[in-house]
């Protein structure tokens, strides 16, 4: 019901998170990268270099817009000004996909610039679904919702994260952006099984996959504590988990996220090449 847009679709191929320092390298030789994702909030100015680069990218590649600031899990009503800024951005260039997070980041008029966790209860489920309904109606398109990385659990939670996400997709019609690194990070941190998580999500709803690097730390009792840092290559167990996911979903748009200590283009392109090889093996 939201598919009236003539925009391009994301290909079932490797993409990367766009960084302005890679602009010239991408225009001269983007291979093997076939599409790009931008963080919506970095392109909400009126003009200048960010908007010019976005137009140049969107002229050449399918572009995915990934929001980090909508606070879909917030107790407060959705920020209508922010929703309008998103609508403006999505009208500015052809956009193949819009995604946001299962998290909150705004409360009492303050924005915390981080993806904060939610308990999985009937009450938060109703709230998240109501917010997603509003987003899809306002933007006139189906959105994808990304699973968070978790560092702690809520005693009040009544269901697992896959159960929560499954119910959200069923009630709102939204798709999932499955971040495999987040699945792995959460599983290690909360002592759950990442493969069971993958087995429990509705495979047909997965419209995009994220891969990124994490840091390793410890909690106060010496248990491993993984931090979703997006600052290094994708870890080997995460690649293995990707294989398991792709065996369920088949090829999907697959994005490498590298947001901190961003490497030169050839390093990022090599990581994307590995992702592309995995996809081609699955497609064969």
């Amino acid at each position: 019901m939201f598919d009236q847009s003539p925009s391009p679709r994301l290909p079932d191929a490797a993409g990367v998170g766009y960084k302005p320092q890679h602009f010239s390298a991408i225009l001269s030789d983007p291979a093997p990268v076939r599409w790009f994702e931008i963080h919506a909030e970095n392109y909400m100015g009126q003009g200048g270099r960010p908007i010019a680069q976005l137009r140049a990218l969107a002229d050449r590649f399918p572009v995915s817009v990934h929001g980090v600031g909508l606070s879909i899990g917030g107790e407060a009503p959705l920020d209508q000004d922010h929703l309008s800024r998103l609508a403006t951005l999505l009208a500015r260039v052809p956009v193949a996909s819009f995604s946001e997070h299962l998290a909150w980041s705004t409360h009492g008029g303050s924005y915390f610039n981080d993806l904060l966790p939610l308990p999985y209860t009937a009450r938060t489920l109703a709230r998240v679904c109501d917010h997603i309904d509003q987003v899809q109606t306002r933007l006139g398109r189906r959105m994808l919702l990304e699973n968070p990385s978790s560092y702690l659990a809520f005693a009040e939670s009544e269901m697992s994260e896959p159960e929560f996400l499954t119910e959200v997709t069923r009630r709102t019609g939204c798709g999932l952006l499955l971040d495999v690194n987040n699945v792995f990070v959460s599983a290690v941190n909360l002592h759950t099984d990442p493969r069971s998580y993958i087995d429990a999500i509705p495979a047909a709803a997965v419209g995009e996959i994220h891969l990124g690097g994490h840091d390793e730390d410890q909690d106060e009792v010496g248990q491993p504590l993984l931090i979703d840092s997006h600052g290094k290559p994708v870890a080997e167990p995460v690649w293995a988990l990707l294989d398991h996911l792709l065996s369920r979903t088949g090829p999907r748009p697959l994005l490498i996220e590298w947001d901190n200590d961003v490497p030169d283009w050839p390093v990022l392109a090599a990581e994307a090449a590995r992702a592309q090889t995995v996809l081609e093996r699955v497609a064969a």
Binding site: N113, Y151, N189, E220, L225
Partner: peptide, 21 residues
Amino acid sequence: GMTQPDGSPASRRFNVYRNNV
């Protein structure tokens, strides 16, 4: 109400969010 895997309070883990912000 926020816990680590053994059910004890997640104080240091909460610091991940404090630090991120």
